[in-house]
Design a binder for these strands. Structure first.
Length: 427
RNA sequence: GGAGAGAUGCCGGAGCGGUCGAACGGGGCGGUCUCGAAAACCGUUGUCCGAGCAAUCGGACCGAGGGUUCGAAUCCCUCUCUCUCCGCCA
């Protein structure tokens, strides 16, 4: 949620920033916000004055009663009944105005940072750089969805039997590879100074609202109706919510947390022919990193986060590129976002494996995540998060890029984790 | 699943319906003392909204939402959550 004070003080800047996202009718929306804000403040002022009056009378009555002047007290009593009615009416107006205002604010996405290019969609993203060598595969190379069958390491049919489409079963070396990647990612994060967190993978409604999954993206999460809980779509939700309603001390900053969780996404309406195999799943594994920083540090931290994620890809010897997302392609909460994509050589496609975002105060505003600065003033912190990394597409690229006549080669850095250096047929 | 207890500030824990934003203790912060530290002592220690350049002032907040009352942390109702014991179980 954008800060009202920002909209109030920098209307033009907010509008021009939001235009980079191609938000329709943004002037009207912003002016509606300002009008509601104005109405709310006026109502509040009047409301508070009436209450002050009524509090004063109540206090007087108390004193009169104490000193036994009952008739004078009675006289004042009648004066308050009219006040009460007016207060009740104003409270109603105030609540309604505040609710409409909040509703409207919830619908406005974050303002893109100055660096973010204007653009309508993926074609307007900027390739910041490419890294690594795209392997030349032999003519009989096949996409991962064929490899996993040939080597019998990931089984979609069994997943359908147990659960449904998009819930694969990892078997043998396939299962070990998952475990190895999770441990590798977590170890790398820990070495970098991240505190490891293992959070619940079910969260309550309050958590969903605080990080912005609710109310709008409700359809993307699996809900446990009987207990009114949600399966997390990413570890961002529980880890960031650790800091909901928290006022941190400046010496606690920056906070850097990393956590592994399975992630659950309904992906309603987002299936198509290009999302075969591991390219899109309902359940997948991911190591997520979360930073909480002072406003002045967040962009430096953002660069460090993306560099950390890139170092994982480099270590895994996967060719990748970094994209700076344009306004139209950025997530709702982000002020600036980098995507990392690996090249899956058999599909001959770039696959997104990480998305590293700076939310500035947008998320902290809903979370009520603040700190006391050196002047003792309480102010909102910046939150950032990123994948480091999401497993399925990493696995897809590893399988496709490393396939050869002798089987699928495991990158050396992973061998201590897997315990094997090649995936062969029948074993 | 059964039975009971409770929800108050950073924590523990009081709180006759009328200076209660809230006693007391602990913690934190600042200070005195000390070469330094501990101890002791003194002081200080909430959030949000609104008005104001500011000092400051007004309002709200004692799980949430309603109600009674001139006045509610205190009385009534509803909801939510937590804890304890028993049962079941990794």
């Amino acid at each position: 949620m954008l800060q009202l004070s920002l909209i109030r003080e920098q209307r033009e800047k907010v509008i021009s920033a939001l235009k980079k996202r191609r938000v329709p009718n943004i002037e009207e929306t912003i002016d509606q916000v300002l009008a509601l804000d104005h109405d709310r403040r006026r109502a509040q002022q009047e409301h508070d004055e009436l209450l002050a009056e009524s509090n004063r009378i109540a206090r007087e009555i108390g004193e009169l009663m104490k000193s036994g002047r009952k008739d004078e007290a009675e006289a004042r009593r009648t004066r308050t009944s009219d006040l009460k009615k007016r207060v009740a009416a104003l409270t109603e107006t105030l609540n309604q105005t505040a609710a409409s205002l909040q509703h409207l604010l919830y619908q406005i996405p974050n303002t893109p940072h100055d660096d973010v290019p204007d653009g309508a969609g993926p074609d307007d993203n900027i390739v910041v750089h490419e890294h690594g060598v795209i392997p030349e595969l032999s003519g009989d190379a096949v996409p991962h969805w064929d490899l996993i069958k040939q080597y019998d390491i990931i089984d979609f049919e069994l997943g359908v039997k147990l659960t449904g489409a998009g819930f694969p079963v990892y078997k043998g070396k396939g299962a070990k590879l998952q475990r190895a990647l999770v441990n590798f990612f977590l170890d790398k994060a820990t070495k970098k100074g991240y505190a490891e967190i293992q959070p619940p993978i079910l969260v309550n409604e309050a958590s969903g609202y605080a990080t912005g999954q609710l109310p709008d993206k409700e359809g993307q999460m699996y809900r446990v109706d009987s207990d009114n809980l949600y399966l997390i779509p990413t570890a961002e939700v529980p880890i960031t919510n650790l800091y909901r309603d928290v006022i941190l001390a400046e010496r606690d900053l920056p906070i850097r947390n990393a956590g592994y969780t399975p992630c659950f996404r309904r992906e309603a309406g987002s299936w198509g022919s290009h999302v075969r195999g591991l390219n899109r799943l309902h359940q997948f594994d991911k190591v997520e990193i979360v930073h909480i920083t002072r406003p002045e540090d967040s962009y430096r931290e953002h660069e460090e986060m993306v560099a950390h994620a890139e170092s994982l890809l480099t270590a895994l010897e996967l060719p990748f590129r970094r994209l700076l997302l344009c306004g139209g392609d950025m997530g709702f909460n982000a002020a600036k976002c980098y995507d990392l994509e690996v090249f899956a050589a058999a599909q001959k496609r770039w696959l997104e494996v990480s998305s590293v975002s700076n939310f500035e105060t947008f998320q902290a505003n809903r979370l009520k995540l603040r700190y006391k600065d050196e002047k003792g003033k309480t102010q909102l912190l910046h939150t950032l998060n990123g994948s480091a990394l999401a497993l399925p597409r990493i696995v897809a690229a590893l399988l496709e890029n490393n396939q050869g006549p002798g089987g699928i080669r495991i990158p050396p850095i992973l061998v201590p984790y897997t315990g094997f250096d090649v995936i062969e047929k029948n074993g």
